[in-house]
């Protein structure tokens, strides 16, 4: 995941609408046998590292340590022991980290999505003095690297008596997500025809009704897009978790658990390979299931920036 949050104002055309037939014919010329071969080589290079570790995670500990995973095909041995060991408390102890990852991620997605929807609505459809200035200010906050905020935030949490709790991570992730979330949702909301909002107002609907009855049903793809983005970002985050949760299995997520394991038992490949796959499987599932929304979210940032 990119940790950056710069919006992506791309082309002015609606991306999906201009897929063309003629362009297809023109591109055929590029698709020579060499080009296809090159594409296949790249695809293999990109897949092999993950495949190698995935296969290793299923081999017995002794086999992993004495021979490469490519020897698997001449001497196949499969076991789930590594996964059992990685999760159990006398091995990798990752099961409590796994639970923590869920407990951290769910509120850290819900909170910023809701707050950003409210704010984005205000910026998109309510007229008030200083609106543009305020919007630009919120938008500009995106460029602040989170590193700049960590230490003062940590002392704020200590003063508030929250240090070492899930609250620190929930609040931090929510805060860091808001500028991008507001920007993205604002752009989607602006796409909704003004007449629709005006008509609802004529019928006497207040902003709260318009927000729920008119906008929310239309916003599902945008909310899904940002939700996935934030889910992946929080689930995969190391820096925020390390800073606020420390390294204990009480609150720290999987990324911290695995990073610790790599630091203390860097050659325990049976634990590391299984552990890495335990951490990968959830975001990968979410990602594959909802890829459509994610790609749209990546691309739609600035259609009407």
């Amino acid at each position: 995941m990119t940790s950056s949050s710069i919006p992506l104002p791309l082309t002015k055309q609606p991306v999906a609408a201009t897929v063309s037939v003629a362009a297809g014919r023109a591109k055929k010329r590029l698709t020579s046998p060499w080009a296809s071969l090159f594409a296949v080589v790249l695809a293999i290079l990109w897949t092999l590292p993950t495949f190698g570790l995935a296969l290793s995670s299923l081999r017995p500990e002794r086999a992993i340590k004495t021979s490469g995973w490519w020897t698997f095909f001449s001497n196949p041995q499969v076991t789930l022991d590594n996964y059992r060991a990685a999760l159990s408390s006398d091995g990798g102890g990752l099961s409590s980290y796994f639970v923590n990852s869920f407990v951290i991620t769910i509120p850290a997605v819900i909170i910023p999505v809701c707050l950003a929807s409210l704010a984005a609505y205000a910026f998109a459809w309510i007229d008030f003095k200083g609106r543009n200035l305020l919007f630009v200010a919120v938008f500009a906050l995106q460029i602040i690297p989170i590193q700049v905020t960590l230490i003062p935030l940590l002392s704020l949490y200590v003063k508030a008596g929250l240090a070492g709790s899930f609250w620190t991570i929930w609040l931090s992730h929510s805060t860091f997500a808001l500028p991008l979330a507001i920007f993205l949702l604002h752009n989607f909301m602006k796409e909704i025809p003004r007449e629709l909002i005006e008509a609802a107002r004529m019928d006497g609907a207040g902003h709260v009704q318009i927000f729920f009855r008119v906008l929310m049903p239309l916003m599902t793809p945008a909310l899904a897009a940002f939700g996935i983005f934030q889910f992946l970002w929080v689930w995969n985050d190391l820096l925020v978790a390390l800073t606020f949760a420390g390294g204990t299995p009480e609150v720290a997520p999987l990324t911290v658990g695995i990073a610790n394991l790599s630091g203390t038992r860097g050659t325990a490949w049976h634990l590391l390979s299984a552990g890495a796959f335990i951490s990968i499987v959830i975001p990968l599932t979410v990602f594959l299931a909802l890829q459509r929304f994610f790609v749209r979210g990546l691309l739609a940032g600035g259609l009407k920036g």
Partner: peptide
């Protein structure tokens, strides 16, 4: 073909680091 190249994006930097450390 695109999904193959795209997949590493869903993997955490930590997971990717383990994958490559093994390489």
């Amino acid at each position: 073909a695109k999904a193959l190249i795209f997949l590493p994006m869903a993997i955490s930097f930590v997971g990717a680091s383990i994958i490559w450390k093994f390489i």
